[in-house]
Nucleic acid binder design. Sequence first.
DNA 1: GTAAAATACGAATAATTCGTCGCATTCGCC
DNA 2: GGCGAATGCGACGAATTATTCGTATTTTAC
Lengths: 210, 210
Amino acid sequence: MPPRAKPRISLRKAPQQTRSTQLVADILEAAIHVLTRDSARRFTTARVAERAGVSVGSLYQYFPNKEAILFRLQVDEWARTSAVLRGILADRTHPPEQRLRTLINTFLRTEREEADLRAALDDAAPLYRDAPEARAIEAAGHRLFTAFFGELMPGASRRERAVMADLVTTIMGAVGDTVTADHSDADVTRKATILGDMLSGYFARRPARR
Amino acid sequence: MPPRAKPRISLRKAPQQTRSTQLVADILEAAIHVLTRDSARRFTTARVAERAGVSVGSLYQYFPNKEAILFRLQVDEWARTSAVLRGILADRTHPPEQRLRTLINTFLRTEREEADLRAALDDAAPLYRDAPEARAIEAAGHRLFTAFFGELMPGASRRERAVMADLVTTIMGAVGDTVTADHSDADVTRKATILGDMLSGYFARRPARR
DNA sequence: GTAAAATACGAATAATTCGTCGCATTCGCC
DNA sequence: GGCGAATGCGACGAATTATTCGTATTTTAC
């Protein structure tokens, strides 16, 4: 296979004046609108530009391609979420298990709020997922958990912690994806509780080594 | 919203003569090839037809649209998998917990074998997922587990079992998705063991009622 | 052998798509 | 007020797409 030119996905140039800053903001807002009201399939530069009240040309001034817009939304989303999670995990005034439960609960609630956007972004994922910038985000999430598992799994090897971080990330992400806007508070709590029982139960009784 | 015309996704007409049966088979095989070698994004009726050594027109004789091909692949895949799982769960000569562990192990190994196709089908999912025929498959999987959980969670309400079936289906699916072709046997076993510990541990110590 | 049904073909069509380019307008600053 | 840089415009080119339809070929039934 020929060494494919990886598509750039970062901003083409940074907006300098206020009007262009606003323009970028408008585009992102419009992008969310198109993505959720229409669908990932109908996510089109023309549609986004029109909704934003901006011309396609202007859009391409700041975003090198369609994928870059999606990626930017994903970055912003992850920034919001990870800030919250990081705060919970770092709060050493509570024992690790409790922090884990709080994290699950908070995470699921966050996911419910952004359910529509998340679902659409997931559908569009194949478009931006392969970019190197996207990998960096995954890695960041992974590190977040791996560090925390140092507390939950005393004596575990780095490799063991990494495997667990992998698994927990996967599980939480998947369960988070099932939480839609029409889940009631009780539904979310139920799922969070079960998941909390499952994980903390596992950590408590974890076989010494295998 | 106008009552959208749902896209048909079933076969347009059944092949009758042997040559047409072969043609459909060729198309499906070619579809797998295109999906895995290329990608969901490049999955095109023209490309599939060319690879199958068949004309586009012939393709449309039997498949009403592109989505129908993808859906058919998904149906076949699920038929293979569910048959195996059903067999494991139904074998009452082993205790439920052991069956659960066997199921997880077998499932993950199955997933590894078909990893490429599965990943591509997942990417293409937005195209066929919303069809009513597709919902039926999900429901079938759900019933499979709900029934089994009657054994694992004696005394649990139907609703409780349904929630668990939901959760377990989600978790297994997600973990299965992480298993790629380059996972070693040891890797798969490790994941299966952890998942088995987690789930069966939970079932064993499940709080009486909440 | 022949007629009808089934099957196969593939060029043509109609829609969409992304991304660019040359030019017009506005801003920041002296 | 005026000048260069930043910004904004939107028609347009080039490419890809799904799907149809009129016609040609093959099979089946009698």
